[in-house]
Design a protein around this nucleic acid. Structure first.
Length: 119
DNA sequence: CGTATGACGAGCC
DNA sequence: AGGCTCGCCATAC
């Protein structure tokens, strides 16, 4: 298969519904590379602006926007998430128990991993 | 083909 | 508790 890890990351991120967030580590685990969280972040950094990939719905394991505080990217991401109804606490963090993505069901996960050729 | 790079994460001070 | 280090691993060069 020609799908790069980056493409697979993008595929998964596109599945995150509005108002929900996933973590870098979670995406990595879904793709079968539990130690590739950093690479997930890199894959999102490489998302072209025009693409319809909801990159803002991916945060770090503590529910924080993973840009240096005050940076433009951080402000943009937070604004986009708040537009989806997500509420940040006083520490600028998201309650993952409340807004965390449920994840993919097994069938969908297998399809994304290419275990069951469908297209 | 070796080295550098990160929008992470776990662990150790 | 909070900050720092170190491992990780797909790409970039």
């Amino acid at each position: 298969m020609t799908r790069s890890f980056f493409d697979q990351v993008h595929d998964v991120v596109r599945r995150i519904p509005p108002g929900r967030v996933a973590t870098y580590g979670q995406i990595a685990r879904i793709l079968g590379s539990p130690r590739s969280a950093r690479t997930v972040g890199w894959a999102l950094r490489a998302v072209p602006e025009g693409e319809s990939i909801p990159w803002q719905r991916v945060v770090n394991g503590r529910g924080e926007v993973s840009f240096s505080q005050g940076s433009e990217g951080a402000l943009v991401q937070r604004a986009l998430l708040e537009d989806e109804g997500i509420v940040f606490d006083a520490h600028g963090r998201i309650d993952l128990d409340l807004y965390g993505w449920e994840g993919l069901d097994l069938a969908e996960r297998d399809r994304l991993l290419g275990l069951s050729p469908q297209l």
